[in-house]
C-alpha cells in the first residue's frame, strides 16, 4: 500500500537548489493582482535567473520575510519556464502578508514539492476537471497542459462550483475556454446574486450531465474535502472507475520535505506522497474521521 504517485525527476531540480532543503530561494514579485475580494494572484521570477520547473499539481512553500511560510499550489502554465504564478486566498497571517506585497518585493520560494496531476495516464480518455472555490487554482496548470496537447485526449470537461457569482475564480478565463468549443466548461453557484443567469446548485449536479464517457474518463478534483467526497460519489455513480479519479489533499505543513511530521495522513506524508492521490489508494484513509 504505497500511496505515492510516480513523480518526474522534477523534485530533484528543487528551487531551493542548495544543500539545505529548508533554505528559501529569493523570487521577485513581477505583478500582483486581485482575483476576488479575498483572493489574489502573483507572478514571480527567480532572482538567480534560473528556470521555473514544475508539474501541474505541485506546490511551493512561499515565505514572507519575517512573517512565515505557507504551502501554495502553482496555478500558472507549466510550459512557461520563466514565471511562476500562484493564486492564494488571504485567510490568515501569512497569506494576508503575501497579499499586501507590492510588485518588486522579494518572496522566498522552496519547491516544487509533491505529486502531480497525472495526465500521461489519461491519454486517449476524456478528461473531467471538477473544482470547487479556490480549488480551481491548483487544477489550472493541468487544464493548461491538456489544452496545449489537446489532440491527446477525448472530450475535456471543466466543471466548476463557486459559492456566489462574485466568488467565481478566473471568470474571464473560464469564458475564454468556453469560447474554444473543444472544451466543455460549466459553472454553477450555490447561491445566485445580482443578475446571474447561469446554473444554481452543487457542482455534483454538473457531473450528472457533463459531456464525458464515464467508462473512458479520467477525473481530477480539487476543493474542500467534503465537496471532493461528494464529487467522487457522483463520478462513481455515473460509472467512472475509482482508479480513474485523482484528488488533492490538504493538511498542515511546516517543512514540505518530510521532516516536520505535520502533514501525515495515515502512512502518507501529504508533502511527498501527495498532495495528489489516486482515489482508490486512499479511500480507506479518507473514510476515517479525524485521521
Amino acid at each position: 500500500m504505497r500511496h505515492a504517485i510516480k513523480k518526474k525527476e522534477a523534485s530533484c531540480a528543487c528551487y531551493s537548489g542548495g544543500a539545505d532543503p529548508m533554505h528559501p530561494r529569493p523570487f521577485r514579485v513581477l505583478e500582483i493582482w486581485k482575483e476576488l475580494s479575498d483572493t489574489f494572484s502573483m507572478s514571480l521570477t527567480p532572482e538567480d535567473g534560473g528556470p521555473v520547473i514544475f508539474a501541474p499539481g505541485q506546490f511551493n512553500m512561499l515565505y514572507v520575510f519575517g512573517i512565515g511560510e505557507v504551502p501554495i499550489s502553482v496555478s500558472g502554465d507549466p510550459t512557461n519556464r520563466s514565471v511562476l504564478i500562484h493564486t492564494t486566498r488571504a485567510v490568515g497571517n501569512v497569506s494576508k502578508a503575501l497579499d499586501s506585497l507590492k510588485a518588486g518585493a522579494i518572496v522566498g520560494v522552496r519547491g516544487p514539492y509533491g505529486s502531480e496531476w497525472p495526465l500521461a495516464v489519461a491519454e486517449g480518455t476524456d478528461l473531467v476537471f471538477v473544482a470547487g472555490g479556490i480549488g480551481l487554482a491548483p487544477l489550472r496548470p493541468a487544464i493548461y497542459q491538456a489544452m496545449a496537447e489537446r489532440h491527446k485526449y477525448g472530450n475535456i470537461a471543466v466543471l466548476y462550483g463557486a459559492r456566489t457569482p462574485e466568488d467565481i475564480l478566473f471568470s474571464k478565463e473560464l469564458l475564454r475556454w468556453k469560447a474554444r468549443f473543444d472544451i466543455d466548461v460549466q459553472v454553477t453557484v450555490d447561491r445566485a446574486t445580482g443578475n446571474w443567469q447561469g446554473r444554481v446548485g452543487l457542482v455534483t449536479k454538473l457531473i450528472q450531465s457533463g459531456g464525458f464517457d464515464p467508462m473512458n474518463a479520467t477525473a481530477y478534483t480539487c476543493g474542500p474535502e467534503v465537496m471532493m467526497r461528494h464529487v467522487v460519489d457522483s463520478l462513481h455513480e455515473r460509472g467512472v472507475p475509482l482508479d480513474h479519479i485523482y484528488l488533492s489533499m490538504e493538511r498542515n505543513m511546516k517543512c514540505a520535505v518530510g521532516f516536520c511530521g505535520h502533514c501525515q495522513w495515515g502512512a502518507s506524508f501529504i508533502c511527498r506522497d501527495g498532495p495528489v492521490f489516486r482515489y482508490d489508494k486512499i479511500v480507506d484513509t479518507l473514510n476515517v474521521r479525524e485521521l
Binding site: G66, K254, F259
Partner: peptide, 16 residues
C-alpha cells in the same frame, strides 16, 4: 521527530 517552525524579525524588520 515532529517539529514546528517559528519565524521572527528584529524590531527594525531588517533581520529575520
Amino acid at each position: 521527530f515532529c517539529s514546528t517552525v517559528n519565524d521572527t524579525t528584529d524590531l527594525k524588520g531588517d533581520h529575520a
